[in-house]
Design a protein around this nucleic acid. Structure first.
Lengths: 234, 234
DNA sequence: AGGTACGAAATCGTATACGAAACATACTGA
DNA sequence: TCAGTATGTTTCGTATACGATTTCGTACCT
């Protein structure tokens, strides 16, 4: 469950194996793992030659990535890896706080004891991680933790939105907690609080608020660090 | 502002004029206006010939529509206009209730007196409409009303999600209130209440809840009519 | 009569090819 | 020297062509 997030539900299963799909996966992987850094120019012909097939599937793959916000595209000019403009980061995090909050709340009643235990284990690892702090590892564990909580969400649309949000952040996954190391400690505590809420069968609204604020608190920490202005009028 | 909702923000402006874009608009229009009914088979070659250009742009257009959920696609088989499975309707409405609620709340502080007046005018028309009830007209006015309230949302991502939601529902726009005519009356009243909240500068959370419940109430009305089971555990 | 195997038609997926737009550069004229 | 224009290169957009896959109808066997 550490792998690079699930594919959008909107794409039909049977699509696997098609070259478009392969191209999509390949390019996405390179963006996420950092081979293609933000601003990098994605030249169709080049990628096609590199991957070994023609430009048509590559083109389609890039359009899909565009729809997900991972690349920016300009007609007759080309595609570039979407940089993470601080503003973009802010928008994405805010959106994620909303949909992830909702997903977590909806999924809460379906989270069993086993899941809770698993989440708690992950959180323990995170607490360990606080000693010799490794932002990359910490951020990955953070995703694992939250995945357990929202993955049972019965509404596939919402779940898909959550996945997309995480994906967009993936490019700067490594850096999130590097910028706000102080936030890491609180984060672990809030995780435990969130688990308690779910265990005790708190009502959906309470859980939603908790999950949402947990995320927007991280956002605010980031903002006050880079003083870009705040959004949390909520 | 009665036109068929805005294009997703994710697509760059300059794309206009390209045949892909034209194809996209054309096909979408036909789906929304009902020329292509749910289940209709979208054959690439046929559409291409009909529109006057080759299959490549058409293909791309269809993939975009797939990403928006307007068509279903199966590899090596083809695309069909996405039917509105009651379950799908339910998922979409629930998602919309969440994102639209958030968008409305975020946009509230930016809604001026002129906007309020405009919204109130639309709502008055809706009230009029209650006499000799015309579901199609009523539902369109309903979209106009809500557009005024969420269109100022400063977060383009969220706004985009709202637009997508409305788009998916567009296919059965005409029928929404046909199924639950009784709901129309309450709806108008809730609109006025919502306006009062915004006018009085109520806090974001209150507005969000009101907007969300306004929508999920419509959903529930629909569900109790078709007894498909409820989702509003919130 | 029912079911299976085979074959033809329909449709999609991808490669290749060419025209069009955008960008960079060099050149001309003041 | 500098502005403005012309030219060349890069890269995209779309058309056409062909191979691959699925689907459906028909004939055959049991």
């Amino acid at each position: 469950m550490t792998e690079t997030a699930t594919a959008p539900v909107s794409i039909t299963e049977g699509t696997a194996g098609s070259k478009s799909e392969q191209a999509y996966q390949a390019i996405k992987a390179r963006i996420v793992e950092g081979t293609y850094t933000p601003g990098y120019r994605l030249v169709l012909a080049a990628i096609a030659k590199d991957l070994g097939f023609s430009v048509v599937p590559v083109r389609e793959a890039i359009r899909r990535l565009e729809a997900e916000g991972l690349v920016k595209f300009e007609r007759n000019v080309g595609a570039t890896v979407a940089g993470i403009d601080p503003t973009e980061y802010l928008y994405t995090m805010q959106t994620l706080s909303i949909v992830e909050g909702a997903a977590t709340a909806l999924s809460a009643p379906l989270v069993g004891e086993a899941d809770i235990a698993r989440a708690r284990a992950v959180n323990a690892e995170m607490r360990d991680c606080l000693q010799h702090f490794d932002p990359v590892r910490f951020t990955r564990l953070n995703q694992d933790f939250h995945s357990v909580l929202f993955e049972h969400c019965p509404n596939p649309h919402i779940l898909d939105l959550v996945h997309r949000g995480w994906n967009r952040l993936a490019s700067l996954r490594s850096s999130t907690f590097r910028f706000v190391p102080g936030r890491a400690h609180e984060s672990v505590d809030e995780h435990e609080a969130l688990l308690r809420l779910i265990e005790s069968g708190a009502d959906a609204d309470t859980i939603e608020k908790a999950a949402r604020h947990h995320r927007s608190a991280t956002l605010d920490a980031y903002l006050s660090q880079t003083n870009t202005g705040s959004l949390s009028a909520q």
